[in-house]
């Protein structure tokens, strides 16, 4: 899976929990929480969707890795590569 494909899945699922989100306006290096209004239940729904679509189960201790879009992508790419090696 390429980084672009991962990003597409992430943005699609972010938009599902926050339908008002404009993906074009999303700054990949700014904090997601400043750009997308999500409560803890939204975050859980997002993680559930990522688990379902990519097979990656993000544990609570890694929530800190999910600060920006770029970091989410890097984290997921790393986990996917580890799963396939």
């Amino acid at each position: 899976m390429t980084r672009e494909e991962i990003r597409a899945v992430v943005v699609e699922e972010l938009k599902r929990v926050a339908p008002e989100l404009d993906p074009a306006a999303l700054d990949p290096d700014a904090l997601v929480r400043d750009q997308v209004e999500m409560d803890s239940l939204d975050l859980l729904n997002f993680l559930t969707a990522i688990h379902r679509r990519l097979g990656i189960d993000i544990p609570e201790r890694d929530y800190g890795e999910l600060a920006t879009l770029t970091r989410i992508e890097a984290y997921l790419a790393g986990r996917l590569a580890a799963a396939h090696s």
Binding site: S40, L41, L47, T48, I50, H51, I58, E60, R61
Partner: peptide, 17 residues
């Protein structure tokens, strides 16, 4: 909660709420 959620996939995790 942290210990309980460690073994759970996101769809079964508990929130403090």
């Amino acid at each position: 909660l942290g210990a309980a959620n460690q073994a759970r996939p996101p769809e079964r995790r508990l929130l403090m709420a």
